[in-house]
Write a protein that binds this DNA or RNA. Structure first.
Lengths: 359, 359
DNA sequence: ACCGCCTTCTTCATCGTTGAAGTGCCACCA
DNA sequence: TGGTGGCACTTCAACGATGAAGAAGGCGGT
């Protein structure tokens, strides 16, 4: 820029104005500046330097518990991103997808070093260092789903808004639905309970309660509450715990719980992707759904209707929109209190009355 | 940072080192620096300033023809993003999704102002000012699909790599497949031909040839070449042109071409999403596929197998990976020449032999 | 003829950091 | 005792831009 200015014998500020404030200089001079820039191969004002000087960069960061590849594979997180971008894009804000990593230090470094004006963080475990790193940056933050508002309060993060759902109540509802249909032998297929990958397999109640992913913890608590209220001994309910929310894990989980005796008549999955795998396993083994086994999911992902899956609908896109709105409107405003979006039980063909002979 | 340094009576550089070069100072002092930072509420080195000084920011920009919401809705572009992130993420690079806009000036401004080290641009029309804006920035650029290498050469962009497929050959192949099945009355449902939205409807050959989206142009040319070679008068083939690649446009297009007389026995769609809409229209009208009408798509999107759609498989993820690899490895290297990935005709149930009575 | 005002451009300081090169000190070895 | 080397830290000078405030010149009003 200095060079362009020198070439024409004008000040650097004038060159700057030629790009950013066309009304601040004569059209003629502006033309000459632009021509000189072109001639000298000046690529225009450097956005990084401008960002430094202006104190903002026009981008929102998105930090996700899992890696980016996972984020794109899961329809629900794609909806989240859709919601965020639906708000950010018209405002002219970019979306910086922050790279994940198995190594916590790299995760933290990525958040610490991201050139953004605000952060959306989504689905973190209670003890994820990524969150404290985000808070340390003193940027506006919007949390989606996890960690819970309670945990945020503990960390004392003032500029933080939160949006999610009442996972526990929603889980209770879907479990109550199965109980209404006469199911007594339940089983659960869960996704991750902790950041650190753990041996997959069946887990007892103590482990369930100690999950550091609050969504996992709350949903399990919801299923349990409904079951216990119906007089079911929860310790007899096999709860499988997989690494993440993929059809593959769902299949593994369904295989595990269906192998227990007496065989469960219902498989409750913590997500539709898990349920997808569970349905596959049922199909593979010749178990009729819902005649032999009912399967329910969670999320009402785009795939759920096609699978005929009974599930809990939640507005993932709405979460993203809310989070982004908080951050973009946030200039100076106090963040609103925790916002819980509505959920709705969606009954489809994958859940049915328990077979009479089975009772 | 100055403040933290002053507080401890050390130099600013030492504070910087405490964060970035722990080996450059005694652990003891480092602790004290970090403690003082915490005490004073210093959020750590500002990534923007560091980016300015270092000359790089650790992010790749992604500019897409359509808006972000569209990018997330289309399975093919999600695969593209998956591919890019599969390479960028392990390298610790973020992905900045650059906001689109109907207003070309805003689109250009978004690209000009993006804080990135390199750019992936995808699916732009030949005359999109966004591309020249990107080139002006003199960053490494990787183009996916459009504009064509020929157009890039015209624009004289040296640091530009390109990846795509041979759209024309692939289109010929799928059309030849239909001709082999005995189809003589073809029809085509296309997505956008120009940046500016145009009246949807049937378009003649001159319009087809003048499409400024090279992918559209090439695919149409491919279908046409195969048809003409088989002795079909292309002017009798209804070619519908919609705004974008959505099931809704596909449905509108299929409705339009199926209303022409004599009714086509085959609907060639330029994408699987269009084909999805076309299949829906057939179902709605009681037309059996493929007995009454054959429908073919393009892309082999994740949805194609479920729909039983005959289509052209292309490796969208591979395109993303290639583009990202070029940019990350690119430090100093000449970009490789244009890279065309392989395609493959995938025959499924949606295409079949033309009904004997119809001939 | 003088004043004030607008337009157009300039000056100055500053955003917050980090590479490169430099200083001072101590230890170790011959 | 002098030389060599390494550690721990400092100094200096950018990186490239822009907000705020200021200075020339022209112009209309009284």
């Amino acid at each position: 820029m200095q060079q362009v200015a020198a070439e024409l014998g004008v000040s650097a500020k004038t060159v700057s104005n030629a790009y950013n404030r066309p009304d601040q200089l004569s059209p003629d001079l502006r033309e000459r500046v632009l021509a000189a820039a072109d001639r000298l191969g000046y690529p225009g004002p450097d956005p990084v330097a401008a960002g430094l000087r202006r104190g903002q960069v026009g981008a929102i960061g998105v930090a996700y518990d899992n890696g980016l590849s996972y984020a794109f594979a899961d329809p629900v997180s794609v909806q989240l991103l859709t919601g965020i971008s639906a708000v950010a894009e018209p405002a002219g804000a970019g979306l910086l997808l922050i790279p994940g990593s198995a190594d916590p230090r790299r995760r933290v470094a990525a958040v610490t070093g991201a050139l953004v004006d605000a952060l959306v963080v989504s689905s973190l475990a209670d003890d994820d260092p990524l969150l404290s790193a985000a808070i340390t940056r003193r940027l506006p933050i919007a949390v989606i789903d996890q960690p819970s508002p309670a945990r945020l309060a503990e960390l004392g993060a003032p500029d933080t808004s939160w949006v999610g759902i009442d996972d526990r109540a929603a889980a209770e509802a879907v479990c109550a639905h199965l109980l209404d249909l006469g199911h007594r032998r339940l089983s659960v297929v869960s996704f991750g309970m902790h950041r650190e990958p753990i041996e997959r397999g069946l887990v007892d109640e103590a482990a369930q309660r100690s999950a550091t992913y609050s969504v996992t913890r709350d949903r399990l608590a919801g299923y349990r509450a409904a079951a216990v209220r119906a007089g079911i001994d929860w310790s007899t309910v096999p709860v499988f715990h997989g690494a993440d929310s993929t059809p593959a894990e769902g299949a593994a989980g369904a295989a595990a719980v269906l192998a227990t005796e007496p065989r469960p008549t219902a498989v409750i999955c913590l997500s539709d992707r898990l349920a997808e795998g569970a349905l596959q396993v049922c199909a593979d083994r010749g178990l009729a759904v819902p005649a032999d086994v009912s399967v329910v999911g969670f999320d009402d992902a785009t795939t759920a209707a096609g699978l005929g899956l009974t599930t809990v609908a939640q507005d993932a896109r709405g979460k993203g929109e809310f989070a982004a709105t908080q951050l973009l409107g946030a200039t100076g405003q106090r963040p609103a209190g925790p916002r819980r979006l509505a959920t709705r039980l969606v009954v489809r063909g994958s859940s049915g009355r328990v077979a009479p002979e089975g009772a």
